[in-house]
Amino acid sequence: MANKPFLPALLLAVTANLAWADHITDPDGFTRPLEHLKFNPGLDQREFERASFDALNVYDPWERWNRRVYHFNYRFDEWVFLPIVRGYRYVTPRPVRNGVSNFFANLGDVPNLVNSLLQLKGRRSMEITCRLLFNTTFGVLGLWDPASRMGLPKHSEDFGQTLGFYGVPEGPYLMLPLLGPSNLRDTAGLVTDYAVEFGVNYLDVAQTSSEHPEITVLKAVDKRHVTNFRYGQTNSPFEYEKIRYVYTESRKLQIAD
């Protein structure tokens, strides 16, 4: 019974302390910063959503066609490409898969070097040249990647970046069958890079591929194997817009690099 008066007194003291602490200001002078935020009363939710959509807007005059190609790629990836990749991973040991990826990556350094030279990137050109030499010789035709262990980073330069480096505009957005997002400039770059790779015919692979299409198929499967993107992974009904925006902005960053 003696403790009963003590409980109301304790509650009263705690309440008083909380009320006093509530008026203690932070170093910035605010006790509840959110209460002092001022919002634009003229910006309603609809305008906010419209502004967000405009931020994702990309020049896409062929959107109807691009969306059809996007849905084709989505279904082809789900029903054909990914099952093949899963089978490839199941029947092929990891060291063999890594060797295949290293081999094709080594071949890809040929157009990387050409485009790096065209963009006047001296240091990068030297690094790519060293990668080609080391991986082709010490890496046994590129099956291993000793250059990365030696501190030579992997670079990615294509003719689309070269055109952008010289100020060629990107043009309309374009969704390519199987290859995915692109634009008019980068599509022309893909054709040019293929012509360079075929013309140089490094290690006689390009010429051999024309006689043995299974090499081209293996290259495509390996490309999908090393690409982490999966259609539908954004879990958004606006995935088309997001892919279009991310691709466009990433290309700007690659060109500026």
Rank of each mutant, 00 (worst) to 15 (best):
M1E: 15
M1H: 14
A2L: 10
P5Q: 06
P8C: 05
P8K: 11
L10T: 02
N17G: 12
N17T: 14
A19P: 07
A21L: 13
A21Q: 13
R32H: 12
P33S: 05
H36W: 05
L37I: 15
F39K: 00
R46F: 09
R46G: 15
R46V: 14
E47A: 13
R50Y: 14
A51R: 15
A55Q: 14
W62S: 11
E63N: 05
E63F: 03
R64I: 15
R67C: 05
F72V: 02
F72K: 08
N73C: 08
F76C: 00
W79Q: 10
V80M: 12
L82D: 13
V85Q: 07
R86T: 07
R86K: 11
G87H: 09
G87P: 08
P93H: 00
P93S: 01
R94S: 13
P95K: 02
V96Q: 00
V96E: 03
S101H: 12
S101F: 11
N106H: 10
G108T: 01
V110F: 05
V110I: 10
N115L: 07
L117N: 08
L118C: 04
Q119T: 04
Q119P: 00
R123E: 14
R124G: 14
R124S: 15
S125L: 07
C130M: 13
R131P: 01
T137G: 12
F138Y: 15
L143H: 00
W144E: 13
D145Q: 06
A147P: 04
S148L: 03
S148P: 02
L152Y: 02
E157S: 04
D158T: 04
D158Y: 03
G160Q: 06
Q161F: 02
T162M: 01
Y166V: 07
Y166K: 03
G167H: 01
P169K: 07
P169M: 10
P169Y: 06
P169E: 09
G171N: 02
G171V: 01
P172L: 09
L174S: 05
L176V: 14
L176W: 07
L179K: 10
P181D: 06
S182R: 01
R185V: 07
D186H: 04
T187Y: 00
A188E: 14
V191I: 11
D193M: 09
Y194Q: 14
G199K: 01
N201G: 01
L203K: 10
V205E: 02
T208A: 05
S209A: 12
I215Q: 05
A220M: 15
K223G: 14
H225P: 01
T227I: 04
N228H: 15
Y231G: 12
Q233T: 07
T234R: 11
N235I: 08
S236P: 04
S236M: 03
E239R: 03
Y240R: 04
E241Y: 12
E249L: 07
S250H: 11
R251P: 12
K252L: 15
K252S: 15
